[in-house]
């Protein structure tokens, strides 16, 4: 496909916006820290109040970094799913990947204590939560994949994703009914979604997962472009369907599953950002889309998180509420303006 040079300016612009969104995100929070102080802390200067320094370095910067990983990674996974399933409505939420993660988390947080009869916090650490959620999302992705191979109808795929959502909701409510208040609360908080409160090790692990996902996406660029013609055409262009599907699915599972595991099920980012990016960049070329979708996702997530923090107040809104409030109208607007969603 064509020339990449015309996009250079746009990329410089996105990086600038990303920088600004990042600065905005770390300057605003429940504790009011003046912009001047934030800058001085960032560039190693001295500030009057020592706790500000601590808040910026140990809370806000890791949180902003996580928001970049979560927003970028989820958006990228949405792009991969839309291309792979040839479906403009595909995304981690719609296809039930997030539901799978929720189910894994619910079974661990609420089910384990039911079965064993005691809340075994020894294995209920954050890594086992991440593992359970990842396994859940991978299993759902696997089932979706098998179904996608059997039924050619892409609409059926979405319905199956929705059904998974319902099944998950049902099991979760049964578990919740029998669960202790404490475990239920843990699950509810996880399901609100959050990019804060991750330990350093968790942030490192999440970075590794996202990096592997991004790398796998980059090596699949040519195949993803071929998939735009449909699977039969892709095969006739020399693309090995089994191998490429596997690589793309692993990338999607790592991104969507890993992120959901650490940050909770975050709605709409994965679905809406690829469409927004296509509106702005007006291309289908994955060499452009992969980096730009990642960057836009990161920006949007930083902004959503900034809003969710309710600057200068002690309250924090569930980030899921914000992403839905931003994302759902975007999808509706796209449908109304474009009549049909193209991908």
């Amino acid at each position: 496909m064509g020339n990449l040079k015309p996009y250079r300016f746009s990329f410089i612009l996105i990086f600038l916006v990303l920088g600004l969104a990042w600065l905005l995100n770390i300057s605003l929070g429940s504790v009011a820290i003046p912009f001047k102080a934030t800058f001085s802390i960032l560039f190693g200067g001295q500030v009057d109040i020592e706790s500000w320094n601590y808040i910026i370095w140990n809370y806000r910067i890791p949180k902003a970094f996580t928001a970049v990983l979560v927003g970028g990674g989820l958006s990228l996974s949405g792009l991969l799913m839309q291309t792979l399933f040839r479906n403009p409505l595909a995304g981690p939420f719609v296809l039930g990947i997030s539901s799978g993660a929720s189910l894994g988390a619910a079974l661990l947080l609420m089910g384990a204590s039911l079965i064993t009869g005691f809340a075994s916090f020894s294995f209920l650490n954050d890594f086992s939560l991440a593992l359970a959620a990842s396994i859940g999302s991978f299993l759902v992705l696997l089932v979706v994949m098998i179904v996608a191979n059997r039924v050619k109808d892409t609409m059926a795929l979405l319905i199956i994703g929705l059904m998974f959502g319902s099944i998950t909701a049902a099991i979760v409510s049964v578990l919740a009914y029998f669960s202790s208040a404490e475990n239920l609360q843990r699950f509810i908080f996880w399901s609100f979604g959050s990019v804060g409160n991750l330990s350093t090790q968790q942030v490192i692990l999440l970075s590794i997962i996202v990096c592997v996902g991004v790398l796998l996406s980059i090596i699949s660029i040519k195949r993803l472009n071929a998939f735009l013609l449909g699977e039969n055409y892709a095969q006739s262009l020399g693309v090995s369907l089994k191998k490429s599907r596997l690589i793309i699915i692993i990338a999607t599972g790592l991104l969507a599953g890993g992120i959901t595991a650490f940050a909770g099920p975050i709605a709409f980012i994965g679905l809406a950002v690829p469409h927004l990016t296509r509106q702005i960049f007006d291309t289908m070329e994955h060499r452009i889309l992969i980096p730009s979708v990642f960057l836009y996702g990161a920006i949007l997530m930083l902004l959503c998180d900034t809003i969710a923090q309710l600057p200068n107040s002690a309250n924090v809104l569930p980030i899921n509420a914000i992403t839905s409030l931003v994302g759902a109208p975007v999808v509706i607007w796209l449908l109304v303006r474009k009549r049909k969603m193209l991908f």
Partner: peptide, 15 residues
């Protein structure tokens, strides 16, 4: 039909 009809003619042929 090609799966994505958002491709331009030139992009599609280049594939």
């Amino acid at each position: 039909q090609p799966a994505s009809k958002n491709l331009t003619v030139q992009e599609l042929i280049a594939l």
